[in-house]
Design a protein around this nucleic acid. Sequence first.
DNA 1: ACAGGTCATTTTGACCTAC
DNA 2: GTAGGTCAAAATGACCTGT
Lengths: 387, 387
Amino acid sequence: MLTDHQIQLEDPEILATNNNNLGTKASLDNEYSSFKMNQRCRVCGEKAAGFHFGAFTCEGCKSFFGRTCNNLSQMDSCKNGSKCVINRKTRTACKACRLRKCLRVGMSKGGSRYGRRSNWFKIHCLIENQKGGSTDDMPDEEDLLEENHSERTVSTPGSLKSYPTSSPHSNHNHNHHHIWNPSSASPSTSPSSFKDEKSDYSSSSPHANIPFINPFFPGNPFLGASGFHPMAPLFPQLATNNPDSKSDFQSNHQPDFLRWYLGCQPQLMAAAGQHQQNQFAVAAGPTDRKALQSAVSPTVSYRSLSPSPSLEDDQPLDLSVSAQKAVKGFAMDHRRSSVRMFQYGSQGVSPASPRPSDSEDDDEMEAQDVEEHFRRSGMILDLSSRK
Amino acid sequence: MLTDHQIQLEDPEILATNNNNLGTKASLDNEYSSFKMNQRCRVCGEKAAGFHFGAFTCEGCKSFFGRTCNNLSQMDSCKNGSKCVINRKTRTACKACRLRKCLRVGMSKGGSRYGRRSNWFKIHCLIENQKGGSTDDMPDEEDLLEENHSERTVSTPGSLKSYPTSSPHSNHNHNHHHIWNPSSASPSTSPSSFKDEKSDYSSSSPHANIPFINPFFPGNPFLGASGFHPMAPLFPQLATNNPDSKSDFQSNHQPDFLRWYLGCQPQLMAAAGQHQQNQFAVAAGPTDRKALQSAVSPTVSYRSLSPSPSLEDDQPLDLSVSAQKAVKGFAMDHRRSSVRMFQYGSQGVSPASPRPSDSEDDDEMEAQDVEEHFRRSGMILDLSSRK
DNA sequence: ACAGGTCATTTTGACCTAC
DNA sequence: GTAGGTCAAAATGACCTGT
Ligand SMILES: [Zn+2]
Ligand SMILES: [Zn+2]
Ligand SMILES: [Zn+2]
Ligand SMILES: [Zn+2]
């Protein structure tokens, strides 16, 4: 196994792996680069201009969403039964269906990252790509025929075959309201239906008492079209430069991670268990940690044990935030490769935006109040009736 | 039966009749007035602004058609299977479907009348109205609910019950390519399918040898959504001020006319028989005759025996045009209440526009050449192989 | 009384800039 | 490398005018 020195110099976030160049970040970047160059707009199928508002989109759909997602209320509904096909030629026909498509592919405002994509994000993209993507009413054949075919062949089909996309428990059509808490189900969340289907992966958690933002909370706008989990799991051992930790992940945890990432979350609970109570779990690499640091109020206390080279590299990253003075609750949206904050304030739960060192006035919220709010919002699994 | 003196003073075109005020033009005008005030756009269902391009439409659809009907070719087709519902809210969504709807309700350019509506037109409207109109994907319930209901109640439902809309041979879904010539069917026109269905009304013509512009010619853009005949029939006895002629019509011919107007044409052939060979039949009241006079080249010779008061009121109107020096062929489009000329020139068949006393140079066309052109265009039934 | 013109308003997306 | 701003171009329809 290569010990490419680049690994030491690169962003110490976790590494991707494939058969061709197992475990190197270079391979990940290479794969992602070709992937990115051939992306099409997830809304209309035109050649994508970039990753905008949480999805690869063209300039038009980017501008459209940026304009219209603010005034959802005054958007007149579709008169064709909300069944309009959205492609490059028809995207201007029905604004309602176009916006619906935007939301369906995961677009939303806030929490954007301007810098490089995180490795989590790249992995996510490649896995999703290998899964075949959503089989929506996406680009017309007509549209594709009019585009440059030579570009599309750059994409290396099957180059990611090594990714264990089909675990023993393949999980298509997994419910958005999965309950991955084995001990007690909140009445507001879905009943035991999922438990019957996926009990193998949700019944073995040893940390059922830890509150955690449920990424599948009802109405989560960041759930992808496939119901894919928008939040990266907690894998502290990945957020380190310690080679042993990385190889440990690759040999022992990567399959579990991938299985989780494809819809199952056994490791997530275990990772969440490393966090204390009254804390909302967060996992991030140094880039995300920096964004987190600037996004979160200075009153928020957080500990960072790694992976800065000057710190203990062999310690798991811990960016957990004390709920007593925290911005209350947040989670990383690695699918969007951004710090996505769920900030509790007088305006209710809303995505947080970076702010300077002000506002000492909104940290009187008690931990249980914060928790209760998230619970009422369906964002927290009601794992236990603490306090 | 009333002998309202208004009849004498009014336009001497034929009279309409209903139960309430049988046979008076006042009743027709009254009925038509309330009908017109409550018309909705035939395209989108919005309150109609008037009769534009051959159909009652709103301002928007009027402007839209005026803009787009010229560049049909560069109109991109619908991407929803041409099934878009067109109403006030969705009319801007799919231009292709909107234009298709416009054409379907009979809109077209040219041949418009600026003055009063003819009585034929009013009768047409009232009959169509009584028939219930086309049951298209017309105005949404939602749209109608948002409009002023008080206006709509002005319309007197059932006020035209006296019109014999359902003749013994009710004719729904009559084919656009009807053959109403019993003797010989053109190979280019439809086969004997219609004859099987409607032979009662197409087999009794005593004037099978007279060429006549077939209003059902393939591609006739003036055929309404219901396939309704766009051209008014020939009823010379109606174009007179002679009271006897009018009462004769009311008692003897009106039922036949209405039956014809609803899709059968026995009387049409009889009327056409009054015209000489090498002439293309025309029927018109004095208003239409005036328009005809200004539209047709001065080289066209026509005879007008009536109904000017200074002329023989008891003679049937004859505006037939000699094909030798005629603009070649034309017919009245009473449905559009306009003189609709099918003018033969170097540009081919096109709607004629009024022109001054010039152009002595385009009357070299022989009668049979004109006829042949129309026949090739599918506009003339190939009744016989004269010459 | 309608065809055609006018033009303010709306919608759009390619392009640019700030971060 | 993306969010947001810019702005020219296109589409729309209420209103006006000539006939
Ligand atoms: Zn797009
Ligand atoms: Zn729609
Ligand atoms: Zn309309
Ligand atoms: Zn359409």
